[in-house]
Structure formats: structure tokens, C-alpha cells
């Protein structure tokens, strides 16, 4: 790839979504944008970017940013994190809330496996109040797939126990289709995490796993602060097991003994 092409892609990703593009990983840029270029009818990534320079079309810009933001996901990714939610965090919060529904947000959920894992898990939990699950992503394409509830045989074998597959999915041709009952438990919305999130309301649990580590430091601090502000005072933020909230120390405190799990700092935005 030409250096000016990498510059262009990196600048778009940073300004539109706060994404950090690793300039060394040209193969990654090539492979992610290559599929998009073909879909858009271009012979090569360079041609697509030249066309963009000639005419800065918003739709094209977002397609590029979304393709670069795409992340891998799987059902019940990080088994320990889900066990912690099931055995401690959700039952504890449910006791506090009584009859009030718990609100859980799977942020940057990609093709929806995390949100649906939460839906299947809470379906089996005997909480007094219902659990409302929200899934969001930057990519409309990813959300469309999430909403369809259709997954390949390959996808349903990554992290999904076979008994849950039989319980909640039907086989239709070569795809596995999630039951309407579980699908209806999740609400979807396109959300750019660097935008103003105050209209979303308060959440009891937010999962933003392996998201902030892909952002540039300025965006990372901003997103961590916004997520903290979207937490209920006793709410819980789950990042990836290897991620920290060091860029927003005033907003979030690590929960002792729980890797990647954070509580809202009691003093954060108290005046507001």
C-alpha cells in the first residue's frame, strides 16, 4: 500500500471513530479493505481510495471505517467473564433492584454473539425482574447480521455449548437460526462510542470487551468516561481481561481480584 493511502485510512478512522490504525500492519488494512473494495466494484484498495479522494462520499467513508473497526467475536467469549456475570454480578444487582429490570449493554457487539450469549444466559437465570439487553455497534452491516440471528456452523461452534445450540437454534439449510424468543430479548442500535452517549440512559452492566485497546489514547479516555457516566452508581463495566481503565482514572476503579472489571468511581461527575 502507498504511504498516502495508509495516511488517509488512518485519518478517517481516527477522526470518525477514534480508532487507532497500526501503520505497520499493512496486511491487515489490505485484507480488511480488500473485501470492501471488491464489493464496491473496485479492482484494488488503491482504486477505491483514489475514487474517495476525487469524491468524498460519506457512505464510502463509513464503509471504510466500519471495515477497519470490525472485530472478532464468539459466543460466551472468555468463559470466566460469563461465569462471573452469571454467578455474582447479575444476581447481586438483581437483588438490589428488586422488581426493576436490569439493563445490560453489549457495546461494540459486532455480529451479536455477546448480546445473544447474555440473552441465553439470563433466560436461564431465576431473577425476579427481567433483564433488558441492548446491543450496539458502529457497523450497520454487523448489526443486520446480528438482528437476523443467523449463524454459520463454524460460528455456532465457537464457544456455544451444544446443549444451548439444540435448545435455542433451529437448523435451516446450512445456517443455524436463533429462536425468536431469544432474539426478541435484545434491542439493537447503531452507536459510535466517541459520540455523546448521555441520551442512552443508565446501565447496570456494560460490556465493552476488547474495544478501548483499539482506540487512540484521546478517544480511549473519552469513551471510558462516557461509559462510566452511563453506569448506574453501583454498575459494573467489563473490559477485555487484559484491558485497563488507566486512561480515565478519575472515572473508574478496578474491582479487586476481577481482571478487566471496573466500578464507577463514587466521586465521578457527582456534581452533575
Amino acid at each position: 500500500m502507498r504511504s498516502e493511502d495508509i495516511d488517509l485510512v488512518a485519518a478517517l478512522c481516527r477522526t470518525r471513530a477514534g480508532l487507532k490504525v497500526d501503520r505497520e500492519k499493512t496486511y491487515l488494512i489490505e485484507s480488511r479493505l480488500g473485501a470492501l473494495a471488491r464489493r464496491e466494484g473496485f479492482g484494488a484498495v488503491e482504486d477505491m481510495l483514489d475514487a474517495l479522494r476525487a469524491r468524498r462520499e460519506e457512505r464510502m467513508i463509513w464503509s471504510i471505517v466500519e471495515a477497519m473497526a470490525l472485530s472478532e467475536t464468539a459466543f460466551f467469549r472468555d468463559r470466566e467473564a460469563f461465569a462471573l456475570l452469571r454467578d455474582e454480578i447479575l444476581p447481586g444487582l438483581a437483588r438490589e433492584r428488586g422488581a426493576k429490570p436490569l439493563r445490560v449493554w453489549s457495546a461494540a457487539c459486532s455480529t451479536g454473539q455477546e448480546a445473544y450469549s447474555l440473552a441465553m444466559m439470563t433466560d436461564a437465570l431465576a431473577t425476579a425482574a427481567p433483564v433488558e439487553i441492548f446491543g450496539s455497534d458502529l457497523s450497520e452491516r454487523a448489526l443486520e447480521k446480528a438482528q437476523s440471528g443467523l449463524y454459520t456452523q463454524f460460528e455456532v461452534q465457537r464457544g456455544l455449548p451444544i446443549r444451548l445450540l439444540l435448545q435455542h437454534f433451529n437448523k435451516t439449510d446450512e445456517m443455524w437460526s436463533l429462536s425468536p424468543r431469544i432474539r426478541q430479548r435484545v434491542r439493537w442500535k447503531r452507536i459510535n462510542l466517541i459520540a455523546d452517549l448521555t441520551a442512552l440512559g443508565r446501565f447496570d452492566v456494560i460490556l465493552a470487551r476488547n474495544v478501548v485497546s483499539g482506540l487512540d489514547p484521546v478517544a480511549r479516555a473519552r469513551v471510558l468516561q462516557s461509559l462510566a457516566a452511563a453506569l448506574a452508581p453501583d454498575g459494573v463495566l467489563m473490559l477485555g481481561v487484559d484491558e485497563t481503565a488507566d486512561d480515565a482514572p478519575e472515572a473508574l476503579r478496578p474491582m479487586p481480584g476481577r481482571r478487566g472489571v471496573f466500578a464507577r468511581d463514587p466521586a465521578f461527575q457527582k456534581a452533575a
Partner: peptide
């Protein structure tokens, strides 16, 4: 548990 072929290392491990 039950694996549907084809499989890869990640699936077997999971």
C-alpha cells in the same frame, strides 16, 4: 459435547 465437521483447533479446544 458434539463437534460438527469440519473442525479446526479452536473448535476442538473450545
Amino acid at each position: 459435547e458434539y463437534i460438527m465437521k469440519p473442525f479446526d483447533g479452536d473448535i476442538i479446544e473450545a
